[in-house]
Simulated scan of single mutants.
Amino acid sequence: MKIALGSDHGGFELKAIIKELFDQLGIPYQDFGTLDKESVDYPDFAAKVAEAVAGGDFERGIVVCGTGIGVSIAANKVRGIRAALCHDVFSAKASREHNDANVLTLGQRVIGPGLALEIVKTWLGTDFAGGRHSRRVDKIKAIEERYL
């Protein structure tokens, strides 16, 4: 599984920690920026990651900003993206099992690095359960078709 990874300046340090985890575990990824801590606009990086996932080049994406809220909102504007803001392990697991989330968003100023890495590992290691959840995800897709 290849991961699209991005952040703004407010998530840059946590993104670096996630990259270290990926390097240790041999998880392939591409960093879509930002590449330093200079102030940038989070929608630019959320869009790059979301478009890479929606385009099929990456199975999943992770985007980090200060709270995770802005990048979640921005990523969810891209057709085919189900971005989930997760600040606990239970939500990370449920976002994959129940919602087939394909983008994880995190807030560097909200959670510490240890919890963030547990969330990332759980999210990456959890499959979509299908079954009754497929019907619900299909309804989300139908809403997307009406409005996007």
Rank of each mutant, 00 (worst) to 15 (best):
83 A>E: 09
83 A>P: 14
84 A>R: 08
84 A>W: 08
85 L>V: 13
85 L>T: 12
86 C>E: 00
86 C>A: 14
86 C>M: 01
87 H>S: 08
87 H>G: 09
88 D>P: 07
88 D>L: 05
89 V>D: 06
89 V>H: 07
90 F>G: 05
90 F>Y: 14
90 F>S: 13
91 S>G: 03
91 S>M: 12
91 S>N: 13
92 A>V: 00
93 K>Q: 15
93 K>C: 13
93 K>Y: 09
94 A>G: 03
95 S>L: 12
95 S>Y: 10
95 S>W: 11
95 S>G: 15
95 S>I: 10
95 S>P: 13
95 S>T: 14
96 R>Q: 04
96 R>F: 01
96 R>G: 01
97 E>V: 05
99 N>H: 10
100 D>G: 05
100 D>A: 15
100 D>I: 03
100 D>P: 10
101 A>Y: 11
101 A>G: 07
101 A>T: 13
102 N>G: 02
102 N>D: 11
103 V>D: 00
103 V>H: 00
104 L>C: 02
104 L>M: 00
105 T>P: 13
105 T>K: 14
105 T>S: 14
105 T>G: 14
105 T>N: 12
106 L>I: 15
108 Q>V: 04
109 R>P: 06
110 V>G: 02
110 V>I: 14
111 I>N: 06
111 I>H: 03
111 I>Y: 05
112 G>S: 09
112 G>N: 08
112 G>H: 03
113 P>F: 12
114 G>F: 13
114 G>P: 01
115 L>D: 00
115 L>G: 04
115 L>P: 08
116 A>Q: 01
116 A>P: 04
117 L>V: 04
118 E>M: 10
119 I>H: 02
119 I>R: 03
121 K>G: 03
121 K>E: 03
121 K>S: 05
123 W>R: 08
124 L>C: 01
125 G>C: 12
126 T>W: 03
126 T>Q: 04
